[in-house]
């Protein structure tokens, strides 16, 4: 564990908190992509299958995995029941079939090992790298976003971005660490996908302005 990974995981927790807080206080999930949320649940379920098989790693690891799966499922539950009337499917129209299909192909072509567990792990890594696209697409369609929603997207993106210095740190100082090529490549791709958003967030929202596309 190093500071970057800790901050990354913390950022992920904060993003979950912001999203739930936004929905609970405004009694609405408007501006939030249901499709992205479904993709994230798929990501966590497929990645954390090892909760049942792998030898126990740490309480931290197990606890975080359970929190990520549970909060993701809870978000989907809220969006599909209580706050369903506030969700507008007409602007949440990204074709997620391509993201699911592409991730599956990548996982089948380059798995760490030819086992079901390793293929599902790789699938989840690739899928996570693109799971934000329906959300970003929705922001692009409406041309703007609520500030709280942009905080959510930023915190979620920062999680993977912070993993990059973590990998560099591990490569330099942690002799036992085995860098996972798939995670590194997908993590870089994911951060690149966010770069446009990060730029606008940094130049507008951080200066107190509304998130609006130029």
């Amino acid at each position: 564990m190093n500071i970057f990974r800790m901050l990354g995981d913390l950022s992920h927790l904060i993003s979950i908190f912001i999203l739930l807080h936004k929905m609970q206080t405004s009694k609405s999930c408007s501006g939030v992509s249901f499709k992205s949320q479904v993709l994230y649940l798929v990501v966590y379920v497929f990645r954390y299958l090892d909760l049942f098989t792998n030898p126990f790693m740490s309480y931290y690891n197990t606890l975080m995995k359970i929190v990520f799966i549970a909060s993701s499922a809870y978000t989907i539950y809220l969006m599909s029941t209580v706050f369903k009337p506030t969700h507008d499917p007409a602007i949440d129209t990204f074709k997620i079939e391509y993201l699911l299909g592409g991730s599956l192909v990548m996982a089948l072509l380059f798995p760490p090992k030819w086992t079901f567990m390793e293929i599902s792990w790789a699938f989840s890594i690739w899928l996570e790298s693109v799971a934000i696209l329906p959300q970003l697409f929705m922001v692009q369609r409406t041309g703007e976003a609520e500030t709280i929603t942009t905080h959510y997207i930023f915190a979620l993106g920062a999680y993977r971005a912070l993993y990059i210095p973590n990998w560099i740190w591990r490569y330099m100082f942690d002799k036992k660490a085995k860098l996972e090529t798939i995670a590194v490549v997908a993590g870089l791709a994911q951060t690149l996908l966010y770069s446009d958003f990060f730029y606008i967030y940094w130049t507008k929202v951080m200066k107190g302005k509304k998130f609006q596309l130029p």
């Binding site: 990645r47 973590n166 995670a183």
Partner: peptide, 10 residues
């Protein structure tokens, strides 16, 4: 026994 990769990150 061949060692399985352990994905210790989240």
């Amino acid at each position: 026994v061949e060692e399985q990769p352990a994905h210790d990150e989240l």
